[in-house]
């Protein structure tokens, strides 16, 4: 039981500091920086993935030997996240790309955009 005698678990402290720093960086990129929108999104998504990694590896004991499960938790989470990526990217690919709903997104097909513009203009002046 007295395997971990350290009073303060350093990897937790480092993980906590890292996540605070990454959160602040992401907020800064969105609120303060003048980067183009695409780069801001890429940047904050990378930060989110890194933060998830911090939680999983530094806080959740994902790769602990004593668990007897070996690489299984890692395996589970990897497949969970792979499915998540396929679901989200696939949905966006089939449902959103090539269409433009209102004035968002920069992949609007010309035809659709024109159609949307007509009725969304009325909506926008409405409020």
């Amino acid at each position: 039981m007295a395997k971990t005698d350290k009073k303060v678990p350093m990897n937790h402290v480092i993980g906590f500091a890292l996540s605070i720093i990454m959160t602040l960086l992401a907020a800064w990129a969105v609120i303060q920086s003048d980067l183009p929108v695409t780069w801001v999104i890429v940047f904050i998504m990378v930060l989110a993935l890194l933060q998830a990694g911090v939680q999983l590896f530094m806080f959740m004991h994902m790769t602990e030997k004593e668990s007897g499960g070996g690489a299984v938790p890692w395996n589970m989470m990897f497949h969970g996240f792979a499915l998540a990526a396929i679901l989200v990217a696939g949905s966006l690919f089939t449902m959103s790309f090539g269409f433009d709903h209102g004035d968002h997104g920069d992949h609007g097909g010309e035809h659709e955009e024109h159609m949307e513009m007509d009725d969304s203009e009325g909506d926008h002046s409405g409020h």
Partner: peptide, 30 residues
Amino acid sequence: LGFWIFLAAEVVLFATLFATYAVLFGRTGD
């Protein structure tokens, strides 16, 4: 170990909600 499997399923549950959110992004209506 079983709880890790549950968490992986939760990842997929939230993935469906994220996908729905992403597809409906911008459709704020009035």
